[in-house]
């Protein structure tokens, strides 16, 4: 992954920065320039909570090159607040224990290493929550 792309996406990956439309109140993550609801262009910055629930998930067995060493792994769509969803890995979990509706917390993790000499890409991943 190109270092400029990692840098450009860091506000959302590092701090869960979302954009709330000042026209209709819809929250977008990742942030957008134009609102899909009312086509407004004015947004306010908003930080999403680092916890949520699994809306749905799948298990990846045939992974893209940067993630081959992690396979099989779980990719989940996590709802962090009403209507705001994000897609990420669910880690530190037994794959057979993953369920729709399970509580998760988001943790700061390394997303891609870009071989041994590239820029490291960091961001959020989900881990089992609630019971801890």
């Amino acid at each position: 992954m190109f270092s400029a792309k990692i840098w450009r996406e860091s506000p959302q990956r590092y701090r869960l920065e979302a954009a709330k439309c000042l026209g209709c109140g819809k929250v977008f993550f990742p942030p957008r320039l134009v609102c899909l609801g009312c086509r407004g262009r004015e947004f306010e910055k908003r930080f999403l909570p680092w916890r949520g629930r699994v809306l749905t998930f799948t298990v990846i067995h045939t992974a893209p090159t940067p993630f081959v060493d992690m396979a099989p792994y779980c990719i989940a769509i996590v709802e962090v607040e009403e209507g705001v969803r994000l897609t990420c890995q669910l880690v530190d979990v037994d794959l057979e224990a993953v369920e729709i509706g399970m509580e998760v917390e988001l943790e700061f993790r390394r997303i891609q290493s870009n071989q041994s000499d590239g820029v490291l890409c960091y961001g959020y991943k989900a881990v089992p929550g609630g019971g801890e």
Partner: peptide, 13 residues
């Protein structure tokens, strides 16, 4: 540490 953890990730947490 898990393969996706290092000094930076643990420090942030």
């Amino acid at each position: 540490p898990a393969p996706d953890q290092d000094v930076i990730t643990m420090s942030v947490e």
